[in-house]
Amino acid sequence: MSCPEFEKSGLLFISGELEKEEAKAYRMHLRECDTCLALVREYRELFAKTEGLAELSPGPEIRERVLAAGSRAAVKSAAGKDTVFSRLSRALFPAPWMWGIPAAAIVVLMLLLNPFARNSAELDDVLAWNDDFLLESAMIEADIENVKTLTATPYLEEDVYSPVPNVSTLNDEFISIRNGIEDLLQEITGF
């Protein structure tokens, strides 16, 4: 008892794997084919019965072993995620020792450019400029004091010096500017 239509479509129809149109066509065929109808019923009953078959478990120690293996792999997976950087690095440096090449290049570059030496020279320049500034400002301060003294002294005809009319204001502005520059230098040099 068989039908070519059942051989072709019967099992897929029962398991719901036919496309919509194919299933519709086979359903139409079932109306006319008693053989197919009987087979579909028999197979369905068989599949329904097999659902009652017992399922078995391995020993509990196997569960522990498998879960431990899964755990180890999960840790590895989380630690070694395949990022764009890791893929690129694998492409550029397939062997671990190849990382030595860029490392050596960086060391050579640092020796040639010597950024620490350059920073040191810049610092020396700033400190020298600071010393000059302090010296100059001390001289200016002395000059201002002279002006103040002169303006406080009665005018003498033989004195050709013409005092600045508002020496006190000038002095205050100078001190303010000087303090600002000193603060700035302290920030740059750290002392």
Partner: peptide, 25 residues
């Protein structure tokens, strides 16, 4: 599981332990 969650693997295992072992046995 692939994002590092071990509990997900345990769920997968528990879901397939009996069907898979029955098939193999």
């Amino acid at each position: 599981y692939l994002s590092g969650k071990q509990a997900a693997f345990e769920k997968i295992y528990d879901r397939y332990e009996r069907p898979l072992f029955s098939y193999i046995l």
